[in-house]
Amino acid sequence: MTSEITGTGRTPSLGGLATMLASATSSQVGAAVGAQAFATVGPAGVVAVRQLVAAAVLLPAVRPDLRRFTWPQWWPTLLLGVVFATMNLSLYSAVDRIGLGLAVTLEFLGPLAVALAGSRTRLDLACVAGAAVGVYLLVLPGPASDLPGVGLGLLAGACWAAYILLNRLLGSRLPGLQAPAAATAVSALACLPVAVVLLVQGRLHGGGVLFAAVAGLLSSVVPYAADLIVLRRVPARLFGVVMSVHPVLAALAGLVLLHQVLDPHEWAGIAIVVAVNAFAVAARAGGPASDGAGSDGAGSDGATPDGPTL
């Protein structure tokens, strides 16, 4: 994810498209790798290690001057740090219960909601109805449904929406990546007690830590760098449309790396949500809503949709 999308409308190169897809793939592969550490450190442990790794890389790279932050800059930064931690914890907890593809698709409703918020046009109302149909097919509510897992996925989506709105605010108050870098540090500090408990319990070692650290690199650091490059070269509308593939990539990563096989109705629900988001972004090209839709992602970490999530 990025704090601001500034596409210019120029025709993107194949390299730009490849970079966007590589960023999205890295984010979802990182999430799948992190899920492999659940048995050792649990979702909370993965989030803690991931946030610590992201902060260790981003703070030296961005070097935000925290001593010069004013209160109007600090309070949304602190809130963004809480959103990062909550978004990642709810997403990974949802992944643990309902699988990566379903969890990321539900999370993706956050940026879609921001893109459609406040609109009363028939087109946007049709998008809302389409998204509702997609979610229904995805979940097929019944006695066997994991409703807590669904709720966690929706909470991650709400956090993603909050992430977009806070980034819009901070984009006018802090330059560059200072706000996301500082917020990542806040999130890492909030997660530090979890890491300490795991260390005392003797669980913070071996493959679990390695998987969580790799998740931090693939789902946070790589998308940050890739999106910073690509957003200077492609239109915001195209970025938002391409980011719509995150749920599909999440489902594929879950299938290949976690052996999570989806039913046909789940694939249908994912396809509908992806199509609705892509259509909504394309139809609202050039407006502020397209910025919001593009900013997110799975999953990502302030760098891409992971969002996406930090």
Results as ranks from 00 to 15, higher is better:
T121N: 13
V196Y: 04
G110W: 00
L199Y: 08
G151S: 09
G176T: 15
L218N: 04
V230T: 12
L155H: 08
L210K: 12
L198V: 07
S220H: 10
A213D: 14
V139E: 06
L210E: 12
A156P: 01
V221W: 04
L218K: 02
D124C: 06
A162T: 11
D124F: 09
A226L: 13
L152G: 01
S145Y: 03
A117G: 13
V139K: 00
G216R: 01
L166D: 10
P180L: 04
L210A: 15
A131N: 06
A213S: 15
G142I: 05
P223E: 13
N167Q: 13
L218C: 05
A213N: 12
L137E: 03
V194G: 09
V135G: 05
L123W: 10
C159R: 02
P223V: 06
G142S: 02
L228G: 04
W160E: 10
A188N: 14
Y163H: 07
G110S: 05
G176W: 01
L137C: 05
G157C: 01
L198H: 07
S145E: 05
S219W: 00
L170N: 03
A182L: 07
L138K: 01
A183H: 08
L170M: 03
G130L: 00
S145M: 07
R168E: 08
L198Q: 10
L204Q: 03
V114F: 05
L166Q: 07
A215K: 05
A190S: 09
T121P: 12
R122H: 15
S172G: 13
W160N: 10
S220R: 08
T121F: 12
Y163A: 03
V186M: 04
V150Y: 07
A190N: 05
A144M: 02
A129R: 08
V196F: 09
Q178H: 14
A156S: 07
P180C: 08
R122N: 15
L125A: 14
R203M: 06
V150R: 05
V230N: 06
A162M: 12
A183R: 10
P143T: 08
V114L: 08
A129W: 02
L218S: 07
R120Q: 08
G118Y: 09
G151V: 04
L138C: 05
A144C: 01
G202S: 09
L138V: 02
A183I: 15
A132C: 07
L169N: 12
L170E: 03
V135L: 00
V221G: 00
G202R: 12
Y136Q: 00
S172M: 01
L177M: 14
L210D: 10
V150H: 08
S219N: 11
P141D: 06
L199V: 11
I229L: 15
G153I: 06
V214T: 09
G207M: 11
V150T: 04
L192A: 13
R168Q: 11
L228S: 06
Q178G: 12
G130H: 03
P111S: 04
D146T: 01
L204M: 07
P143S: 07
L123S: 14
L228V: 11
V128N: 05
A162K: 03
A182V: 13
A188C: 14
C159F: 03
A131I: 00
A115F: 03
R122G: 15
R203E: 07
Q178E: 15
P143Y: 02
L192Y: 15
S119N: 14
L170H: 02
G157I: 01
T184C: 08
R203W: 11
L138R: 00
I229W: 15
